[in-house]
Design a protein around this nucleic acid. Structure first.
Lengths: 199, 199
DNA sequence: GTCTACTTAGCGAGCGCTAACTAGAATTCG
DNA sequence: CGAATTCTAGTTAGCGCTCGCTAAGTAGAC
């Protein structure tokens, strides 16, 4: 139960671990294959044995990121059943915990404009799916009379933006735990869709 | 009155207008000085007559962006006086209208990691000031008994993230006007700080 | 005759990527 | 079982290109 609240440390192959670190620190364009190879203590062509090109490394990292976040959100929604509050709350909790635990992976989202059109389409499809899950959950809640917003889509986007922001400022050394932060955001999300809170 | 809701079209010198367009389309690192010069129909050294180097162009654009948004937020707060609801609502309205009207400038925020430490510090100071204004407004509202959140800082950051997200998805050709979007976000922001709405 | 706003020409460095080769491990086969 | 072969995971060397930037010169305005 609630396995989807757990985000164990990443276990990435060395090339991806080093690439992620460098890309987060300097950006994708400013990260050269020579630098990645150097940090690994190998030569450049060694990278090309494992990945077709530089972009394939970024794409592998983005795939990994999307697999993690979608699997957790899906699990949260499944466990929530049909209760709109549990569904929206679970989804937001899963997303915020992801942003707080995997800030580096979440940061990669801002590198999507470096993707070729084909790769970008594949990545955006994943992102759109999460946005759609939020919107559907809100719309269902409105039909059930639990929520009252008249702008489910706009609300969903606002909530998702807010959650993504966590990756930008969250500090593990700061005063708030990921769980505390997630609880705050669940409350705000429910307020955004005009759920009448009892707390 | 309410001049701060108006965001007239940008009037940038040609070099900055072209640079902004290119940076938004391809990213700062992927935008070469040759490309900028080519789009302008001049040669590369012409750019260096007007700007010390490539980063000075980015910095001029970021300065312009921060001047616009801070001046509007300041004006909104001044006009709101001391009423916490009017203050938070005005600030959020000014920010969302900025994001919707100047998506390109707002997008530049994601290029701040290309700045040298000195330039980054100057830019972040501006951003922190806006975050501080939001936080102070929320804290004042709590002391006055108008708002009830116990996490003013976290709330302020969540609201700011949400507003910044607008620049990422807003489409002028879409179904929502900037004013309608701003009104939605004001409502969500007030709900986030647990203001009891009468609507 | 000085200042503004450029031009031509080009330097040095770093970029993504590849052809060709190799040490050692794993596998196949007479 | 041992030799021959194939596969894995690299290596050395370098190609062609683009990058940010600059020294030196110049046409036209003030």
């Amino acid at each position: 139960m609630r396995d989807w609240t757990r985000y164990p440390a990443l276990e990435l192959p060395p090339i991806l671990a080093v690439s992620l670190d460098q890309i987060v620190r300097h950006g994708y364009d400013a990260t050269s294959v020579r630098k990645i190879a150097g940090e690994l203590g190998v030569t450049v062509p060694a990278l090309y044995y494992h990945f077709e090109n530089k972009q394939a490394i970024l794409m592998a990292l983005l795939d990994h990121a999307m697999r993690i976040v979608t699997s957790h959100v899906d699990a949260a929604l499944e466990e929530a059943g049909s209760d709109p509050v549990a569904r929206l709350g679970g989804a937001v909790e899963a997303i915020v915990l992801y942003m707080a635990h995997h800030r580096d992976l979440a940061f990669l989202d801002s590198e999507r404009r470096s993707l070729t059109p084909a790769n970008l389409a594949r990545y955006v499809a994943h992102r759109d799916r999460i946005e759609g899950l939020l919107r559907d959950t809100i719309e269902d809640g409105c039909r059930a009379g639990t929520f009252r917003t008249s702008k489910a889509a706009a609300c969903g986007r606002a909530i998702l933006s807010m959650c993504q922001g966590v990756a930008g400022w969250y500090q593990p050394s700061g005063p708030q735990s990921p769980e505390e932060t997630a609880a705050d955001y669940v409350r705000i999300a429910l307020a955004a869709v005009e759920f009448e809170q009892s707390a």
